[in-house]
């Protein structure tokens, strides 16, 4: 009984310490955003790398997501005789929730783990130390550029996923009935307002920031030893996904408070 209590307390302590460390790390990284030198070359390189790596994955997933969502919701809408509401409904669910969250989860799996493994390897092979000794702050050169790149790119990838998802939805509708692309677009966009797009976009900026940050943190704090590279990649994915859902939860409540729905 005593050991159980100690175990629970110990894991709670570890959890809170981890949260606190991530927050301190976040503070340090944000400070690096505003500290010279600004590594625009590395930022571009990372941005290109991230976008290039995830775009095909996100395109395929986005398309399937829109297609399946439409096919699944269509029978219910037909029962209500509300088929014409289907594009609007799909557009709202893609733009507000599914697009951002699915894209963010994919990026957590792809980018966050990549950054975690890369930085973990750099840590293990003392590349980060070497950088530190050479007078280049790895937090500035390696971490801040990656976090900035994901912060900028994830919202763009989400827009892309939304667009492809809507096209997938159109394709699904076109399989079952005859609907012109123009009609579909006008039905879809009629139902969308700024209250749908703006909170979703702000949310994705945070998704992007934490995808980069968690990956970096896990890599940056990797232990010495080859197996810790894999571990940091793995826990980067898990932690980033968890953080995405927490942000999503807070975001939905905040937008509810601000916009009233």
């Amino acid at each position: 009984m005593e050991t159980l209590k100690e175990n629970i307390l110990g894991s709670l302590e570890r959890f809170f310490t981890e949260v606190g460390s991530i927050l301190l790390f976040t503070g340090n990284v944000i400070r690096q955003f505003f500290t010279a030198p600004f590594e625009h070359k590395e930022l571009l390189k990372q941005g290109y790398y991230i976008g290039n790596k995830t775009l095909p994955l996100i395109a395929i997933t986005g398309f399937i997501m829109g297609l399946v969502l439409t096919l699944q919701s269509r029978p219910v809408m037909v029962d209500f005789g509300a088929e014409s509401l289907l594009p609007g409904m799909i557009a709202i669910s893609i733009v507000r929730e599914i697009g951002p969250v699915i894209t963010a989860l994919l990026c957590a799996g792809k980018i966050s783990s990549g950054i975690g493994a890369e930085l973990g390897a750099m840590k293990v092979t003392e590349q980060l130390d070497a950088m530190e000794v050479s007078g280049a702050k790895p937090l500035n050169y390696v971490v801040a550029t990656r976090v900035m790149a994901t912060t900028i790119l994830v919202p763009i990838l989400v827009f892309f996923a939304d667009a492809v998802g809507l096209f997938g939805s159109f394709a699904a509708l076109n399989m079952r009935e005859d609907i012109s692309f123009r009609l579909f677009l006008s039905l879809a966009f009629d139902s969308l307002g700024f209250a749908d797009v703006i909170p979703a976009t702000i949310k994705t900026i945070f998704f992007g920031f934490f995808i980069g940050l968690i990956g970096s943190y896990k890599g940056y704090t990797a232990d010495r030893g080859t197996e810790s590279v894999g571990l940091s990649a793995n826990s980067a994915v898990v932690t980033a996904s968890l953080v995405i859902f927490i942000i999503d939860l807070v975001a939905v409540q905040l937008s509810e408070l601000i916009y009233g729905f």
Partner: peptide, 10 residues
């Protein structure tokens, strides 16, 4: 320090 901060924020 991280422990306290983590508890506070969580």
């Amino acid at each position: 320090r991280p422990l306290k901060l983590g508890m506070l924020v969580s």
